[in-house]
């Protein structure tokens, strides 16, 4: 039972990270109907930017706690801004010129952008993986594993709490942003009918750019979380995380923000439980198989709107 709870905690943490990335996929897919293949690599770029700032300003666990929190918030804000700039640039260079062009073209440029970003970071930052000393050590012990120490100790680390809390806060903020602000309204209008939205005076290009910017900012948060949680990154983390986050977005129902979060959680849980109870090697197979099964039997995902085919 303790083992189960430990897996549950780990799964929710991992799922939160996937969920944050998945939001970027789902928003972009919702608004321009393309798989932004480079999004996983934007997440990787975000993780790298956060890492560089943490190292450059010598942020370590030895700092006073208040200062550490402030420093991390600072890193988060700066890396969100810079990653957002990367997201904006990719959209501007690789996708905007192809707006209204045929569907496969942006998919190919997205794959090209993904390859380019990966190799750019590999060249500029080196191919070796970057280990980081844990910044937020310690945590709660929910169960000490019994008096004789034979049971399983359940740990809820501070970094896990941080990840889950930040994700929740961002999720709520984001839902409000989409539902209550004029930007959100513009986005939803562009999702429905881009031409009509532009006729009604919405700057469609700007709205789409902002979607990419927001997606990239969230991905950079996920990047920082990933860094704090695993403590090691390399230039290749974007691909697998990206594919799984996209899986999460589809699983939850593409175009739906709560769906992306739910899908992220499910993928995180499935992966963790599979590794915990069956085999670590086949955890990706488990995630992908779930994707295939869900798509075959429930193509609209868990929370998505069914796509009605007009005859």
């Amino acid at each position: 039972m303790e083992y189960f709870f430990q897996q549950l905690i780990n799964g929710v943490t991992l799922g939160s990270i996937y969920g944050l990335i998945a939001i970027g996929y789902t928003m972009v897919y919702g608004i321009i109907g393309m798989i932004n293949f480079a999004h996983g690599d934007i997440f990787m770029v975000g993780a790298f930017i956060a890492l560089i700032f943490i190292v450059a300003f010598s942020i370590t666990a030895a700092m006073p706690i208040a200062l550490l929190v402030l420093a991390l918030i600072g890193v988060l804000i700066v890396s969100m801004a810079l990653t957002a700039a990367w997201g904006w640039t990719v959209e501007r260079i690789a996708y905007r010129p192809l707006r209204g062009s045929f569907r496969l073209a942006p998919l190919i440029t997205a794959i090209g952008a993904s390859i380019a970003l990966q190799n750019f970071v590999q060249i500029s930052q080196g191919a070796r993986n970057k280990p980081l000393q844990p910044l937020i050590p310690g945590g709660f012990s929910l169960s000490d594993g019994g008096a004789d120490g034979s049971g399983f100790a359940v740990q809820l680390s501070y970094s896990q709490i941080l990840i889950i809390v930040v994700t929740l806060a961002l999720m709520i903020g984001f839902t409000l942003l989409i539902n209550k602000t004029s930007l959100g309204r513009a986005q939803r209008a562009c999702e429905q009918d881009r031409k009509m939205a532009s006729l009604l005076g919405i700057n469609v290009d700007r709205t789409i750019s902002l979607t990419f910017v927001m997606g990239a900012a969230l991905a950079s948060v996920a990047g920082l979380m990933f860094l704090l949680y695993y403590g090691v990154i390399d230039f290749y983390i974007g691909f697998l995380a990206g594919v799984k986050a996209f899986t999460a977005a589809v699983l939850g129902g593409i175009g739906s923000l709560p769906g992306a979060m739910l899908g992220g959680l499910l993928i995180g849980l499935i992966e963790t439980f599979w590794s915990g109870y069956f085999s670590v090697e086949y955890k990706d197979v488990a995630a992908f198989s779930i994707l295939a099964i869900v798509l075959i039997f429930m193509p609209e995902g868990l929370l998505g709107k069914p796509e009605v085919e007009k005859v």
Binding site: G33, T247, V285, F288, S289, L295, I296
Partner: peptide, 28 residues
């Protein structure tokens, strides 16, 4: 057989998943 009734990008992502599954199985 199971996936060909999917449309558009869903088909793309499922085929990608199958490609990865086959690779992971070969690997392990």
């Amino acid at each position: 057989f199971p996936v060909l009734r999917l449309r558009g990008d869903y088909l793309a992502i499922v085929t990608l998943a199958f490609g990865e599954i086959i690779r992971v199985v070969l690997l392990n």
